[in-house]
């Protein structure tokens, strides 16, 4: 159960139950769709960009607790960030969920994203955690094709 508590931290369970920014975004000027064919996860990320600034962000879709909470915390973290800042956070997040077990992370740098540090002990779940971020990346790049984890 202890490993499971590492994965399913309270923050994650809370965001799974009550996801933030979980709706279609009116006035969105960038969207992207992401799939995880392995488990059937599917989500849409909506962005309202002003110049390089993420003025508003939301998501919709169905997925496991990890992907849903990841999307929820991602949207909460990125509101008001620039595209460049978002890309840096994606890189940090990706490093954190794929890092070796001994590696520690600067709390200031990762903030709320730290809730996902337990994911690295569950390699098959890394894709669940990163799907929202890959989808965000596609939206920022203005890609038309749906993103797949496979």
């Amino acid at each position: 159960m202890s490993d499971l508590r590492e994965l399913y931290q309270e923050v994650i369970l809370d965001h799974n139950k009550r996801p933030r920014n979980f709706q279609k975004l009116e006035g969105a000027n960038r969207t992207a769709e992401g799939y995880n064919p392995l488990c059937g996860d599917q989500l849409m990320v909506y962005l309202r960009m002003e110049d390089d600034m993420i003025k508003d962000i939301s998501f919709q879709g169905s997925g496991c607790a990890i992907s849903k909470a990841s999307a929820s915390i991602m949207t909460a973290t990125l509101k008001g960030k620039t595209k460049a800042e978002a890309e840096v956070l994606f890189e940090t997040f990706h490093k954190m969920v794929t890092a070796d077990l001994g590696v520690t992370f600067d709390q200031l740098e990762v903030g709320k994203l730290a809730a996902f540090s337990g994911v690295r002990e569950f390699p098959v779940r890394v894709k669940c955690a990163t799907l929202p971020w890959h989808t965000l990346h596609a939206a920022l790049e203005g890609k038309r094709e749906a993103v797949s984890t496979e």
């Binding site: 159960m1 994965l7 139950k17 488990c39 496991c64 607790a65 990890i66 849903k68 779940r125 669940c128």
Partner: peptide, 14 residues
């Protein structure tokens, strides 16, 4: 209810 099958799979695997 309220639990995605993927999460069930991970917990059962443990």
């Amino acid at each position: 209810d309220g639990v995605h099958p993927h999460d069930i799979g991970t917990i059962l695997d443990q």
